[in-house]
Write a protein that binds this DNA or RNA. Sequence first.
DNA 1: ATCCATAGATTACAAACGTAATCCATGAGG
DNA 2: CCTCATGGATTACGTTTGTAATCTATGGAT
Lengths: 138, 138
Amino acid sequence: MRGRNQRKPVAPPGISDAEWKVMNVFWDRGPSTLREVVESLESGSDWKPRTVQTLIRRLVTKGALSVEELGREFRYTPVFSQADCQLDESRSFLGRVFDGRLVPFLAGMVESEKIPQEEIEALRRLLDEAEKRQSPSE
Amino acid sequence: MRGRNQRKPVAPPGISDAEWKVMNVFWDRGPSTLREVVESLESGSDWKPRTVQTLIRRLVTKGALSVEELGREFRYTPVFSQADCQLDESRSFLGRVFDGRLVPFLAGMVESEKIPQEEIEALRRLLDEAEKRQSPSE
DNA sequence: ATCCATAGATTACAAACGTAATCCATGAGG
DNA sequence: CCTCATGGATTACGTTTGTAATCTATGGAT
């Protein structure tokens, strides 16, 4: 069991709903042991520690977490950045539900959710930046 | 707290990946028979007709499609609007992946995808509208 | 030295999913 | 009338997911 899954696949693996909750803890805390994750999850989920362990193990198998021995426990570390996985999910979501198109997605959101004013402004700033980056002042 | 809530049977049921492809056909075409759906899917999937039939049946069981007899075939009709289901999925996606926050989602998108200029403008217009709708006249 | 809490490994087990095949009835074609 | 393609119903079957329990080894407490 020395250095079992250490090579990094090129793409983030499919991460399920429950697994996302676990990965989010790792991305928040960085490398962590099972116990640390269980504690972090105590507020916000009613999973038994065994359940968390199962999810972690599956994430290791999938190549989403790497393992390193740390005394008698293991310490797990995310293999992919949160941003990479988020992007991956975003693409797959948009593809599945909105035929890959961003505009209808945002249209639905602003139409049905109340977006607070500051958020609207933040979104606008994002668009400004994107525009600048893409047409570099010419 | 009014708003126009429609009394559909319930809320849109969970629709799986494969099922979305089928539902999208119904939303495009309106009420359709199995054969029509199979034909519509011919380009863009390599599913056997049986597979499509299974997916349709599951969607009926889930309450996402209603059935009506039409000669010796059945005609299936979406029970929920595409917009309702899209909204449902959007919320669940944002919750799972972005802690429910829209801004980081869009940040990731504009940072990693090249959004065409017209889309940026369309998105901006959406924000303008949202703003107007939410502060009718301050 | 003994016993327990706990970690990891193994096993469980049903529901949902992807992807059909088989069985049965029937309308269309010969 | 007999045959066949096709629709619906039933059945299939491996995989993934959610949610753990049991088994085994061991470091810490007594």
